[in-house]
Nucleic acid binder design. Structure first.
Lengths: 238, 238, 238, 238
DNA sequence: GTGGTCTAGACCACA
DNA sequence: GTGGTCTAGACCACG
């Protein structure tokens, strides 16, 4: 035959079929062909499109769901929807990984210092009037919740996340969420945390004031103390 | 009314069978009942233990694998093995999420600044003789690779990760890996990056020297420039 | 092996959404948060509270209704009301189950012997003047009904239930109702019973007299004969 | 008109459609057209047969399931299967009803006395060699479990149920199960039961011996003491 | 009626 | 004997 047999025989695809599907969908997402909010075809239709069984499609969807790329809703108008991205899943993954890792609570807190203190200057610099108003509103909400005996770690986490939002940088926001999401919760769960107190909220208020005053150094100092204090709660022996 | 019916009825939340299995295994990991390196029973045996079908077990394993908690090997001595944790998977997740997010490359670089600059002081403070020797060794390896035309982004990423390792804090290390893993690669892939140059390696060497000299401020300045330069490569219009 | 994987993996048990709701409401009942006579919120409101569809709520209510825990009334003042408990539903369940079971009419009668004869001593011991008067009143009512040709198995069952009521123990009462409710009816329906006769009512009167005289042994004997005779009617070949 | 209008107008069927289906299936069961182990047609087929919607069929199946007449299994070979009857469901119903009723634990215990003591003579009379061997086997199993720290209320309940089985009367057996099933468990759960002890098992052994010796009076006495002792555990103030 | 979820049992390729 | 895949058919839930 005229042509040599070189390059005729391509390596067979050793990947899992489900992984191929996952990659293909990720490419579509990266290319912007699929946007947040879009709905994927039904499982049964995807079977036909990819020419695989339903089980394989489901495995692929499961992976994408785990990666936080889509959520699956049941019901007649259900299906697989691309998510507006959130770092929550990432926080879960981080928490899981650290559980398995040799990282101590002290290690994690130190990493959090890096992120929180690094974020602060950007937040102080870029916070709008609206941002600052929102921060104060959250403080007041927290005070009300405290009186009602409903103050919890979630409200505290939301405040820290809101500070990150002041940077108007979604990547930074996600980074912060990773630490103030499930990870923080699992940290505090595992220790019998003293109930979040008045003092925590008071410090939040002072932080908001420092950001309003564009006082980077003051904010850094406040945040350092604040974190040290909360860190001390989960790490009695520091 | 004697008792109001408010708050009596909690929203129901029916988990998937596979999710229940995932959670159960995560608990076992957190509790230390399952250690890195351990092998889970075979899929078929897990079916019997959990009293579910094989597909369901497989979905659960797929999720855990995606979360980086275990790796699956085929073959007669294969099975699902708990991983020594690594942040690689996390980086993949982060990259995926940012692909979907409105985050620009500039945003991501800014987040990386926070992490890299925040890590540096700890690295400078705690780097051992061995750490510093390793850093220099990597620089030399890079120089050799460059001559051989084999220098690539992976080697550069490894250097940054090695700096984080100097903090001797696994959580910080993971944080750094998240940015210098698949994420960085996907960032640079999407742009036609000029080949990593001599200058990059030279800056790495100077960074190593600053760490050896315990010169925090010098190191900060060097890293800032280094990152700015690489950032400029992926962001011509900054 | 360091840690065996035995007993680590518990069988998963995923409940239906409707079952979760059922359980939740049962807990509220057991805890006394919901009392007999209370009205549950409307189906539509329950949907929102539980965050499920209406069909699911309806299935849950249907189960609770079947268990005799609530009754559903239609109309503008309708809704789901917790019942004052009655053993009627239980009797239905017992009857259904025995229909399906390999239990013969003889078996059931034997079980009834146990309950009726076991109840008698308590009834004799604790019957008040009022109880005894009520028993005699029922006998006379039965005699009148017989003359009018309206005597039926229900009236007879009521007499036996009333005896159980003399124990002033609601649990015993329910036990008796289980046998003298739908079960007895279904037993007798299936055979062409000779109409309840004079003799049956006469024996009831004697039983009442024995109870009045606090004559346990006499009552036992009477009841034994009475049951044997009725049993013979449904079991010609005993 | 020639004919009077009497009896022309029958009451309209006020029953729920689902209830009609339930009744129809119950009739088939009573008539023996459907036997334990039989599988009903699939939901979709039943829809067509009854000419109703799936929701209606599902409600009917849910009711029948609640009544313990059938169990529903998912999966490829799933469906609705007629159960081999068991009194477990009945016990659940009884427990629920008593939770709602004004019955105290003391009331329930008294009812249990009636059943247990009434059953004993029949068991003594009819127990076969095999029955007796089984009773002793259970005692030994219990002793082994106790040593392993695994003795629980279930094993104790099983012993009492096994005694009822000695009567070779399925109706009596069910009656006993009703009390020694979920009801007993809920009774003991609600009180902090002292762990079932050596003494309980010893008494079980003596009971088995009395049955072996066909000693009705001895058995009665033993059972009375046994029940009194266990009753005292849940009723400290008797 | 349309979706997601689960099951049982089978075949294949691999180490 | 392991994981990887497939088929066919059932229940479960939503609108």
């Amino acid at each position: 035959m005229a042509t040599s047999t070189e390059d005729l025989f391509l390596p067979v695809n050793v990947d899992r079929a489900s992984q191929v599907i996952v990659d293909q969908i990720k490419v579509l997402i990266r290319a912007g062909k699929l946007q947040p909010g879009d709905r994927l075809p039904s499982e049964r239709e995807l079977c036909q499109r990819f020419n695989v069984s339903r089980v394989t499609v489901r495995e692929a969807l499961r992976v994408l769901e785990t990666n936080g790329l889509l959520t699956i809703r049941v019901g007649s108008h259900g299906g697989a929807f691309l998510t507006t991205p959130s770092a929550e899943r990432l926080g879960v993954g981080l928490a899981d990984l650290l559980s398995l890792a040799p990282a101590t609570a002290h290690d994690v807190t130190e990493a959090r210092f890096i992120v929180e203190l690094g974020t602060l200057p950007l937040a102080v610099e870029r916070a709008t009037e609206g941002d600052i108003a929102a921060l104060f509103a959250m403080v007041e909400e927290a005070e009300a919740a405290l009186k009602a005996g409903k103050y919890n770690v979630e409200l505290s986490a939301a405040f820290h996340t809101r500070i990150a939002q002041c940077t108007h940088n979604p990547a930074v926001e996600m980074l912060m969420q990773s630490f103030n999401g499930p990870l923080r919760m699992s940290l505090e769960e595992s220790h019998t945390a003293a109930p979040m107190g008045e003092q925590g909220i008071a410090e939040h208020r002072k932080l908001a004031e420092a950001i309003q005053a564009r006082d980077v150094e003051g904010a850094r100092k406040l945040m350092t103390e604040h974190l040290n204090r909360t860190a001390a709660r989960v790490l009695p022996n520091s």
